[in-house]
Structure formats: C-alpha cells, structure tokens
C-alpha cells in the first residue's frame, strides 16, 4: 500500500500542501517542547540538558522501528522510501560547520525559524546570518562545486555500507541509543545545574 505518494494513493500534486501541514505541526511541537530556547539547545554541548539528543534519537528510533514493522506487515514498501544521497566529504565538512554554528548560535536552522516566530532577537540575528551564508555560498558556488558534487556515494544507508541485516542493525541501534540516554542522564547529574 504505502508509501502513499509514490504509489499514487495521494497525488504528487499534494506534496507541498502536506509539507506545509507537517511543517506547521513540527514547528508547533518544537516550540511547545521548548526547542525555541537557545539555552536548552546548547545544553547538549555543556552537559546540562540532553533533550535535543533524546528527542531526535527517539524520533529516529520510532520512525525506524515503525517503518520496518509496516514493511514487514506489507503496509509500506521500504524499498520505495526516499533515501537522501550521500556526498561524503560535503556532508562531513557541512556537518562540522553546522555544528560550530549550532554551539555558537544556540540554534539549528529549524529551531531558529521557530524562535523567530515567537520574536526572539538572537534568533532573528541567527536567521540573518543564515541568509548571508546562503548568499556567500551561492555567489562562490564555483569554488564549492567540486566539494558539493564530489565523493558521491549514491542513495546509501548504514545497512548498505555495513552490509548487515537491517533487523539486527535496528536492535543494536536501539540498545546503543538507550545506553546513550542513560549515559547522558549520568553526565547531567554530575554537571552543575544551570538555571535557564
């Protein structure tokens, strides 16, 4: 049956409308759970709040386990799912830059928009910074192009690159995630409490 759009159950023309609806809900949930606070987000790096880590790991796990159950039961075909293409060095360097921006500014791009919506000045400055970055990147694209398009590895997943059974991978990944959650709780109890 699924995925719904590639199988034509929902026409592809609805793409943007569905994206807007999901975006609205995502933004609302981010804001409601306090993700529009740069102090909460930066807490991951200082060790006083691991909400970001827990939330995104849990979201990945729920989606992963849920999708594989749906695939097993025949409700969704995992082979038809979109897999983002990997440009290895582009991803590594881009990730590092994004990480520096994250710890320096206290937002990731999504949460910064969320914080702009509730009128935070630091977020407004952050978004202007993003725009300047976008401008520089597009103007100097000829310089970045070899990095941007190089070391292309196709639409691969971790299962493809490690060549292991996806079910075992999910199981190991789950154990790992829960271990990380426990560890982060331990670190948090040791770090001096920060009021924010």
């Amino acid at each position: 049956m699924g995925p719904l759009i590639p199988n034509g159950i929902i026409p592809a023309d609805w793409d943007s409308i569905i994206a807007i609806l999901i975006g609205l809900v995502f933004g609302f949930v981010l804001e409601a759970s306090g993700f529009s606070s740069s102090r909460k987000l930066a807490g991951v790096f200082y060790g006083y709040d691991f909400a970001v880590l827990k939330v995104f790991f849990t979201a990945a796990l729920v989606a992963l386990i849920g999708l594989y159950y749906m695939d097993y039961l025949g409700y969704a075909d995992i082979n038809l799912m979109y897999v983002h293409p990997t440009y290895l060095w582009g991803a590594i360097i881009g990730g590092a830059i994004m990480g520096v921006g994250f710890v320096a500014g206290g937002f990731c791009p999504g949460t910064s928009i969320c914080a702009v919506a509730i009128g935070k000045v630091d977020a407004i400055v952050y978004v202007i910074g993003i725009m300047i970055g976008v401008l520089i990147f597009s103007e100097l694209f000829f310089l970045f192009q070899p990095l941007y398009e190089g070391s292309f590895m196709g639409n691969i997943t971790l299962m493809d690159s490690f060549g292991i059974n996806p079910y075992w991978f999910i199981f190991i990944f789950t154990i790992l995630a829960i271990g990380i959650f426990a560890l982060s709780d331990k670190i948090r109890s040791k770090v001096k409490k920060v009021f924010y």
């Binding site: 796990l61 999910i170 199981f171 829960i178």
Partner: peptide, 8 residues
C-alpha cells in the same frame, strides 16, 4: 523499545 526492536 527494546522489545519492539527485538521483535523485528
């Protein structure tokens, strides 16, 4: 979580 992942 562990039960569900183990189930798979």
């Amino acid at each position: 979580f562990i039960i569900l992942a183990g189930g798979l």
